[in-house]
Design a protein around this nucleic acid. Structure first.
Lengths: 136, 136
DNA sequence: TTTTTATGGTTTCCTCTGGAAACCAGTTCC
DNA sequence: GGAACTGGTTTCCAGAGGAAACCATAAAAA
């Protein structure tokens, strides 16, 4: 509806897409969709995130209204993160992505092997002779 | 199935997710899902991509078996890109992402404004008194 | 004739982000 | 007296991304 279009460079929706289309964001929101987690729990679950990036991401997600941050006055301070109702509406779309990765990984690996092994043939690249249509 | 898990750092599915969870990849595949496009057509449609990044992405997507590249021996060479059957299985999951961005953009913008205007209050941050559970 | 436009890229340069690791404050465990 | 836990911030460096130039070729425009 309206004039929003992610393909336009300055559209706010583009900013949102840039936030979501990030490997760490997908993984963090995926874990939080299962249960609330604390900072270091998240860090261990999402293998490979640095502390810096994780805290940056959580801050941005909180600002976007996708993640909720609660601090408890325990001995070492306890901070718990969980999804907001808005963040929950992302669970299905994002898990569709990770699901796709896990179900089609074999096809992708096969394609990569074929591509790599056909390297020599592409060096003698053959272009199709007939022009498809004019382009001006 | 099996032992694939995107949350493990060295899992091949993680590599695939890293390819998909990229703003340019989402936009490129989104346009190609509508119709085959040539290089410069894509460049104009996906506003903001540099030529370098676009060619890098198309090469990787071709290697992953998601995109098909065909060259025609026209006067200036014509190169056409379109989705493979495997790439087509990504159309629904990816358009779910862009659709989310366009339908929830208002909520996100509102959340950002609230977050920014409540900046002063968070400087005097109040932690919840009761500890939720022990953590060791 | 010279300039401009188009094709599809590659290469160079520079900035900005991401990752690794150190550091910080406070308390409990050994 | 350290070591380890909590949740981060800061520093430093390498690598990725964006802007722009460059490449070859040909048609169209001036």
């Amino acid at each position: 509806m309206y004039e929003y279009d992610v393909y336009e460079q300055r559209c706010p929706t583009r900013m949102v897409l840039e936030r979501l289309a990030d490997k760490w964001v997908v993984l963090v929101l995926g874990r939080l969709s299962e249960q609330p987690l604390r900072f270091n729990q998240l860090r261990r679950e999402v293998q490979g995130v640095s502390q810096k990036v994780l805290s940056q991401i959580l801050k941005k997600l909180e600002r976007d209204g996708l993640v909720n941050r609660r601090a408890f006055a325990t001995v070492p301070v306890t901070v718990e993160y969980d999804l907001t109702p808005l963040g929950r509406t992302l669970t299905a779309p994002l898990s569709a992505l990770t699901d796709w990765a896990e179900t089609h990984i074999e096809s992708v690996l096969t394609a990569q092997q074929q591509y790599d092994s056909a390297q020599g043939e592409r060096d003698a690249e053959e272009v199709s002779p007939p022009p498809p249509r004019n382009h001006g």
